[in-house]
């Protein structure tokens, strides 16, 4: 085991870590921005819901490597364009989030919605200020799953030559440097745990009512 590889390549690891992070997190942000309106649409009509749930469910089943290879053809991009990976991971994020946000929106008590309407909220303002905030805990839970799985999926891109920490796997395998592969696994794990913890904290911070209201709010 040539552990000497690690100190000699700290610069490379740092560089790939930065690249890896944005390749995983940009799709997370895009996925969230796309999922919220789609989830809203899904709660409007049963038809939209079944179409969206079926479509995202199908997309989610497509193996990651297959999707990464298929997208350049569908989008007319070069196979080595990092945009392929961003689009693929955005699709997975949307597939994960739409359903859970839609369920969370459905779970908003109808009395709360009725009260907001009675107070004069327009539908859009009610959605932004009442329904969506109440769906935050479930949305954050979905985001955490998506963030962790994105961190791992970015490495698959290295098979077709895209960047990120997966390059440590392909390079370590070809040049027979186990220390390089292990470094990649550990850094990906640590990144995933950090993002997971950050999302958990942010989710708690932006829903102060969930902490104080849980015990009292349940009682009728």
């Amino acid at each position: 085991m040539n552990w000497g590889w690690i100190p000699r390549n700290l610069g490379l690891v740092a560089e790939l870590t930065v690249e890896h992070s944005w390749l995983a997190l940009l799709p997370l942000l895009l996925g969230l921005l796309i999922s919220v309106p789609l989830a809203w649409l899904a709660t409007r009509t049963p038809l939209a819901r079944s179409v969206l749930v079926t479509a995202t469910g199908l997309l989610y089943t497509v193996p990651s490597l297959a999707l990464i290879v298929m997208l350049p053809l569908l989008l007319g991009l070069q196979i080595l364009d990092p945009l392929n990976l961003v689009v693929a991971l955005t699709i997975y994020t949307v597939a994960l989030l739409v359903r859970s946000i839609a369920d969370a929106l459905d779970a908003v008590p109808s009395v709360v919605v009725a009260a907001a309407t009675a107070m004069g909220y327009t539908p859009l303002r009610r959605f932004v200020a009442v329904e969506m905030p109440l769906a935050i805990p479930v949305t954050v839970a979905g985001l955490r799953v998506a963030a962790v799985s994105n961190m791992s999926l970015v490495t698959v891109g290295a098979i077709v030559g895209l960047g990120g920490l997966g390059l440590l796997f392909t390079d370590g395998f070809q040049r027979d440097i186990p220390a390089e592969i292990i470094t990649g696994i550990v850094v990906v794990l640590v990144l995933a745990l950090i993002v997971d913890a950050l999302l958990l904290v942010v989710g708690r911070l932006i829903t102060p009512w969930a902490r104080t209201g849980q015990a009292a709010g349940r009682q009728r």
Binding site: V148, M151, S152, T155, V156, A158, I159, L165, G166, F169, T170, G172, F173, I181, G184, I185, V188, L189, A192, L193, D196
Partner: peptide
């Protein structure tokens, strides 16, 4: 969170 590709390799 374990990268499957890394484990395989």
């Amino acid at each position: 969170a374990l990268p499957t590709f890394g484990v395989l390799v």
